[in-house]
Design a protein around this nucleic acid. Structure first.
Length: 498
RNA sequence: GGCCCCUUGGUGUAAUUGGUUAACACAUCGCCCUUUCAAGGCGAAGAGUACGGGUUCAACUCCCGUAGGGGUCACCA
């Protein structure tokens, strides 16, 4: 397969949502394909009828589209090796299972679930190293098997694991992994309902779909020997394997729902950028020799290699994700942020406000360095969208002085004389008032900020005042002057009482 | 428990594949800048590479053992 263009696949089972670990697997597959001019295929592993989830496939595809991992072949994008739903390939698996049976590499098994359970319990009680099927049905005579079949007895098909050499996996990430054959169970290939198990289906499909590299999570490593036995039984050339390290919870167990968000859509809903998610997840188990950290998708395609994927599992550290998200957000064009902010606003309580683009752009400019998420433009500075509903008491306590009322009155008086003040005009006016009152500018800056925004933090005051505009500033300060002195008075009272 | 995988600061990783004061980033702390908060700049603390043996002039890098963690042992994927 050395000269062939690689064909890789992401083969999730549609359980409802895309797991971030799945996203990382999909990404590595995608990057490997794009890097090497190959094809990235999406195959739906829906062979478990019990786990059918309505709408799961659509949701999965939607999420994949959202992050921008476009597949070359898959559902709704037929190539020449479809269908891409395993549930639509049942006859293919059946045919292949029959072929295996004919060659003695598989056999029908009529054992009941009860017997199997009992067998397993007995083996466990006997403290056998490993519970395995006892091959009872392998020794059924041809006649018995035929009889059972014609009687319509429920049955499954099992892989017939024979003795022989150790099974060796050559893996790009883990080099060489070796298993003795006695640890390999006679794996179920076809279930009673006629559906194949993962093991049969993935081998048959990977071969038929021309998959050259199987890139998947480490949880598959121990079942890979079964797959290799199947390839051998069919006489097929093995694909190259690459088993990826797991994504972990903070306690180093496999990343799970219980310990935080696990679905890509959860992160999307929280406002993470797709660029940040991909960038972050790419770094969980892979790095460049320079240890660079900021990448967009094109960078990743250029730099990625499976050889630099490493072996140990990685903890999914949200703090770092947050930082990467902020980095990506700051590098975006203001116009792009504007569009995202509009979407965010449309879903907020300010959805009925009519806000001009120039106004939003001013906010974006002023807040850019202060936000890590688009929604923070709203959450961190609601005062751009509504008048303060309260005033931060700790700020009042610290910044509101006896002369604040007087200074602010003088300031708005001065402002009222200005015609279309620029940002600089707001500054000049404020400094004039300070000079005339023979006090520092801070004496006005801080009260002006709380009075107009209700809080003590935010962009530069002159930005704040300019963006709000002269009229609004005057209204807000007048409003504030009616209530802040009372708050201050109350705070002073409390102080005396304690 | 059997089998398999893994092990560099709290976290993600780097270390020209045996020669570095073990590097970078996130997080933390401090200082500077800004009369706010961030961002940014500078700096600090934090691992001597899980542990123990070897091999070697030299080991994070090779070998053996131990420990710890994880994965897997379904008619789920």
């Amino acid at each position: 397969m050395s000269n062939k263009k690689p064909r890789v696949r992401f083969a999730p089972s549609p359980t409802g949502y895309l797991h971030v670990g799945g996203l990382r697997t999909a990404l590595y597959n995608y990057l490997f394909a794009k890097k090497n001019g190959g094809k990235f295929i999406l195959r739906i592993e829906d062979t478990d009828q019990n786990r059918f989830v309505e709408g799961a496939v659509d949701n999965l595809i939607e999420t994949l589209n959202w992050v921008g991992l476009e597949y070359d072949e898959g559902p709704n994008k037929e190539g020449s090796v479809g269908p891409y739903f395993q549930s639509e390939r049942l006859d293919i698996y059946k045919k292949h299972a029959e072929q295996l049976i004919a060659h003695g590499d598989a056999y029908q098994c009529f054992c009941t679930t009860e017997r199997l359970t009992e067998l397993r319990e007995k083996q466990q009680r006997a403290k056998l190293p490993q519970a395995k099927y006892d091959k009872l049905c392998l020794h059924l005579s041809k006649e018995e098997t035929e009889k059972n079949l014609t009687e319509g007895k429920p049955h499954i098909v099992r892989l017939n694991v024979k003795g022989g050499d150790n099974v060796i996996i050559n893996d790009i990430v883990r080099d060489r992994v070796e298993f003795t054959r006695d640890v390999i169970d006679d794996q179920v290939l076809i279930k009673t309902d006629g559906f194949p198990t993962y093991h049969l289906a993935n081998v048959v499909d990977d071969y038929l779909m021309g998959i050259t590299h199987v890139i998947r999570g480490e949880e598959w490593l121990t079942s890979t020997p079964k797959h290799i036995l199947l390839y051998n039984a069919f006489g097929w050339e093995l694909p190259t394997f690459a088993h990826l390290p797991l994504l972990l919870n903070a306690d180093r167990s496999k990343l799970s729902k219980r310990q935080g968000d696990v679905a890509v859509e959860d992160y999307k809903a929280k406002g993470y950028l797709k660029e940040a998610l991909l960038n972050f997840v790419a770094l969980l188990g892979w790095s460049t020799s320079e240890n660079e950290e900021f990448f967009n998708l094109d960078d990743l395609i250029e730099k990625f290699s499976l050889e630099r994927v490493h072996k140990a599992g990685a903890i999914f550290n949200v703090e770092k994700l947050d930082w990467i998200n902020a980095e990506h957000l700051r590098k975006k064009d203001k116009s792009e942020i504007l569009e995202m902010l509009k979407v965010e606003l449309a879903e907020s309580k300010y959805k009925d406000l009519e806000l001009k683009d120039e106004y939003l752009l001013l906010i974006i400019e002023a807040m850019l360095e202060r936000v890590s998420f688009v929604k923070e433009y709203i959450d961190n500075s609601p005062y751009f969208f509504e008048r303060p509903t309260s005033y931060d008491e700790t700020v009042i306590k610290k910044r509101w002085k006896d002369d604040s009322v007087d200074l602010l009155q003088k300031y708005i008086q001065k402002l009222s004389l200005l015609d279309n003040p620029t940002k600089e005009d707001f500054e000049i006016a404020l400094k004039q008032v300070a000079e005339e009152a023979e006090c520092g500018a801070g004496r006005i800056i801080h009260p002006a900020r709380v009075a107009t925004s209700g809080v003590g933090i935010g962009p530069g005051v002159y930005d704040l005042l300019f963006i709000l505009g002269k009229d609004e500033v005057i209204v807000r300060i007048n409003d504030a002057l009616k209530v802040i002195p009372e708050i201050k008075e109350r705070i002073n009272q409390q102080k005396q009482n304690t």
